[in-house]
Amino acid sequence: MATKLLAAVITVLALLGHVMGQGGYGPSPSPSPSPSASGGGLAVGYYDSVCPNAEEIVRGVVRNAVAQDAGVGAGLIRLLFHDCFVQGCDGSVLLDATAANTQPEKLAPPNLSLRGFEVIDEAKAALEAACPGDVSCADVVAFAARDATVLLSGSGVDFAMPAGRLDGRVSLASEALGFLPPPTSNLSALTASFAAKGLGVGDLVVLSGAHSVGRSHCSSFSDRLNSSSSSGSDINPALAASLTQQCSANASSGGGGDPTVLQDAVTPDVLDRQYYTNVLNGSALFTSDAALLTSLETKVAVLANAIIPGLWEGKFRAAMVRMAAVEVKSGAGGEIRKNCRVVN
């Protein structure tokens, strides 16, 4: 079976070649080199002169947090995505509610399950002690997501993260609802959401690989467990039965009204390309995961990532850097917060 799949992938790749989205999905597993500069005035080593230990300070805090709970690492990667897709990568997702703004981004339904805020707080406090007023919260979020990626991948996905973002002053729950694609999204909706942020179909497929770590609330995929619905027909029947049992058992045992399950039961605490095998086997949780098989372009990309060693890892590095450069603030458009939870 694996031989047939590999032959199919090679054949399709040969036919499609350069049309397979941003960066292509050719057979070379060589990762793209990390850039020294990025969009929006970002640059690798941005803090070398003003706070030379900035990245190491963040890395130490993240390392300790992930050692205690790998799920926090998954949460930090997700935190970057949710930050960048609303108001750009500006730390706006970190802002708490105030009398002037009772509904910031973090209180929007898609963000209620976000994790890692305390890790960001701890890293920022350490940075303020070492280099007061120099390192933005937005950059802390980006560094933390990179560090979590490195740790959860066993250093299989390591890259330089450009910095120089400023923190935003606007944070609205209504915008989170408008820009964050729900897990029930079809491919058209997902593609439009990524395009709105300057990201391509290739980025969509590659960044979806982050679903190989972490947990998901049962409500996020309950639509696929209903065998009478058209969306539930593509999920692996054995997995559907197991998920139904886990969700109902956890709820009835006092685990809460919306229990969580592993997103990847095969390698749950490892950020790897297992996600793509899960998608092909009908063993990924979300409708948005299954949607990657609904076009030739995305299906071939899923196949390639599942089978070609090193391909996804190299593309994930580049996609994370691209995402972390979305709509960054600069100049009068931002600030460096002293406390990541409140504007100055």
Rank of each mutant, 00 (worst) to 15 (best):
A14K: 08
M20V: 03
G21K: 14
G24M: 07
S30M: 07
S36V: 08
P52D: 09
E55M: 14
I57R: 10
I57A: 08
N64A: 15
A67F: 14
A70T: 12
G71F: 06
V72I: 15
L79T: 08
L79Y: 05
H82M: 03
C89I: 02
L95P: 12
L95A: 07
L95T: 14
N101W: 04
L112F: 06
S113V: 13
F117N: 05
K124D: 11
A126R: 12
A129L: 11
S136I: 04
C137F: 01
A138L: 08
D139F: 01
D139M: 09
R146A: 09
R146F: 04
V150Q: 15
V150W: 11
V150L: 09
V150K: 12
S153K: 00
G154L: 12
G156K: 11
L172K: 12
P182E: 05
L190H: 06
K197V: 09
L199N: 02
V201F: 13
S208P: 07
S208L: 06
V213I: 14
V213H: 05
S216L: 08
S219N: 09
N226V: 15
S228D: 15
L239T: 00
A241C: 03
Q246S: 01
C247S: 01
S248E: 13
A251E: 15
A251F: 05
V261T: 04
V261D: 00
Q263W: 01
V266P: 00
T267Y: 00
R273Y: 11
L285Y: 05
D289L: 10
L292P: 15
T294I: 03
L303H: 11
L303C: 12
A306C: 05
G310W: 00
L311G: 02
R317F: 10
A318R: 09
M323V: 02
E327S: 11
G331K: 04
